[in-house]
Write a protein that binds this DNA or RNA. Structure first.
Lengths: 349, 349
DNA sequence: CTGTTAGCGCATTCAA
DNA sequence: TTGAATGCGCTAACAG
């Protein structure tokens, strides 16, 4: 590994000073076309690709990197298309500035990276108390933070965030079911704690819930149906919808007429479970989802759901980061879900 | 934004020299427990999180970042679970060392990042000629590279890679179909060029194919069936399988008895198309896939397919990177697919 | 328009 | 076991 050629080498070769060479590359200052050409061709000759980011970032104080913190490991996090849409939105907003995304997945496993990784700012995606703890590290580093995804944990109240009207939105779909005549519903909930323990959705579990999104969506259902049963899933996966669906639908004598699933993947799973049990959706069972992810590959229904503008949320999170990096003051942004009445809800038999 | 506290501040506060403070943090050198404690508590007092990565990386020459280059933008790239598995494998291998992944998606759009992003090494995932062009930049930067995913484009022959026996594997599933008695098959191919143009799979298109994976898998089918028709998909998506499936199955008089899909998602789509046309799989049509991704949410079949060890490939790519960073010489690794005989193939009617 | 001068924050020599 | 000095590669002031 030969010694890397540096800007100084290029400058010498071109017969100019280092600072001039620097300006020639950054294009920031006034450099005559002739000198720039000389510098650039000298660089080409020496195989110099451009200023070393290490020196540059030490000097400028900027790395051009935006960290994206995910609670889960990659494999789990990206099973839910909503995550991919978030990330895509962030990338779309941030990349044009020449910035790149540092993926910090499963941060609970190695919290150390948060204090050692070179970044200019951080976006916390769908965080729970587990990640908010490590978020303090980031704050101490003096870096801008934005929280993205669903509701914001109370601990991060003062951090700019991109949120969703989880409660109101869920209440909308609940009212839709109520208006259709449903009185006996069940909820398939997202995880309520970091351990992702499954189990019946009891008042105790609800009270102990540490995941803001889950709580809010439960409250939205409560706003319309004061009383309902439910099951807690271990994550937003189709097979968890199938599992919980079977639990809720197995006993015909205690079978709800409608199920509110807290994600589209869970809803798709519930519908599959219902079909397996010989139930017709929406004839025998109404199902609503949440997210507005397209699940038509999975089920042959047009799912009644709440569409969240995931890509737009991602972009907004990116924008809030950029604005903070530009020195601006930033306000949280709240998005609204749009109710999509599909073909999976109908009056109860 | 107050001036950041530096290691020097901490050292002063602790009444030691900067170098001692440095040692106290890195733990590399001999420091008495007493002094280390003094340094650490001084740091805590000042809210010092740890050495600034900028200074550290300039000095050490290492950023602790591994770049992952994806051809597509995030939204498209991660629609295929195989990509997620790759990334998860890479992260699993690389994270324990405190390293993080820099996601460089849709690099064609902003090739500049490749020469400006702080990285120690780069993994090119499923690259085509489009990305190999920009790979030269990385090579000129003197950074280790590993190519991951499918077959390697000829241009990157000399770069260490993690490959798959695409051709031999496809030949295996083709022989399976042949042994069942199929003589009239069709292929649903992955994109053949960067533009992802769809269309019939003609000899011209095959000859002009710039995607190594696609070519290899076509050749594998050719090894058994010298002659077949086919359609080119615009990507590894279920709906593309549906679309191409309809094209291939619409005309009953020219309907193949079996379809080789170059990915499981495409295969799932083909099966959906067949079902929509009232065909029974495998009764009226046999279908094989490729990848070994679990698509049982999408179709109610146990897909006959070729299982590639995606997570293992990702891990290996990560390992090859780490070994190169450690100064080691590295050999390419070739993986083998395992044929999984599922329930979507049977003798033709 | 170009050159000179200073560090950015840290890890690593080498001495003490 | 600790401290003093040095420079990693670059950019931003300022002076010319």
């Amino acid at each position: 590994m030969a010694a890397r050629t540096t800007l100084a080498d290029v400058a010498t070769r071109a017969g100019v000073s280092v600072s001039t060479a620097s300006l020639a590359f950054s294009g920031a200052g006034p450099v005559s076309a002739a000198t720039r050409d000389r510098v650039l061709s000298a660089a080409a000759l020496l195989g110099y690709v451009g200023p070393d980011p290490r020196g540059r970032s030490l000097r400028s104080g900027r790395s051009g990197i935006v960290g994206v913190v995910l609670e889960d490991r990659v494999l789990e996090a990206f099973r839910d298309p909503i995550m991919i849409a978030f990330l895509d939105g962030i990338a779309a907003e941030v990349s044009p500035g020449g910035r790149a995304l540092l993926l910090l997945a499963d941060v609970g496993e190695s919290p150390h990276v948060l204090s050692t990784a070179p970044m200019d700012a951080v976006i916390l995606v769908s965080c729970s108390p587990a990640t908010t703890a490590s978020a303090e590290t980031v704050i101490r580093r003096g870096m801008p933070i934005v929280v993205l995804g669903g509701s914001v944990p109370a601990e991060l109240d003062d951090v700019p965030s991109v949120t969703l009207d989880d409660r109101a939105a869920t209440a909308t779909s609940a009212r839709h079911l109520f208006a259709l005549g449903h009185r006996d519903i069940a909820v398939v909930a997202l995880p309520t704690d970091i351990a992702r323990r499954p189990g019946p959705l009891t008042d105790e579990r609800i009270a102990a819930c540490t995941t803001a999104v889950t709580t809010e969506r439960i409250l939205g259902a409560r706003d319309v149906f004061p009383d309902f049963t439910g099951e807690i899933a271990t994550g937003s996966y189709v097979e968890e919808g199938v599992r919980t669906g079977h639990l809720l639908l197995a006993d015909p004598s205690r079978r709800p007429t409608a199920i509110i699933a807290q994600s589209d993947l869970l809803a798709a799973g519930v519908i599959k479970a219902a079909t397996e049990l010989g139930l017709d959706v929406p004839g025998d069972l109404s199902v609503v989802g949440f997210d507005g992810v397209r699940v038509d590959h999975v089920i042959d229904h047009d799912l009644t759901t709440l569409v969240q503008p995931a890509a737009e949320e991602g972009r907004t999170a990116g924008r809030l980061v950029l604005e903070q990096l530009a020195g601006g003051d930033v306000e949280s942004v709240a998005f609204t879900c749009e109710f999509h009445p599909g073909g999976t809800t109908a009056p109860p038999r």
